[in-house]
């Protein structure tokens, strides 16, 4: 009954939809472009780090996050236990 709809408050959810879209799309665009260069950046970083310490492939993790409107590249390197690296010196 459209005549009733005229007197009932309508839900204006389009603005919410737009806000959610803008946030999710900004994040996904950054992630998608990162997918193209992250694997080779990870490989290069591992090579550089190995000049100084012994690390396994899985101990260097890269991730792009979208924080407060900025894209942040997070690099996580898990170092070997101190004794092993001492032994190398």
């Amino acid at each position: 009954m459209r005549i009733l709809e005229y007197f009932l408050p309508t839900k204006r959810s389009a603005a919410t939809a737009k806000d959610r879209l803008q946030i999710v799309i900004a994040r996904e665009r950054a992630q998608v472009s990162a997918q193209d260069y992250l694997p080779s950046l990870q490989k290069d970083l591992i090579d550089v780090i190995r000049k100084y310490v012994t690390v396994e492939d899985g101990q260097v993790q890269l991730q792009v996050d979208h924080v407060d409107g900025c894209d942040v590249l997070e690099i996580n390197v898990q170092l070997p236990p101190p004794r092993r690296s001492m032994a190398r010196i």
Binding site: T10, R12, S13, A14, A17, K18, L21, Q22, I25
Partner: peptide, 16 residues
Amino acid sequence: RAKRGEMLSVADVLEI
């Protein structure tokens, strides 16, 4: 529905 704010409008989608 777009005019009533219930649906994304052409302008919203174009902007995104």
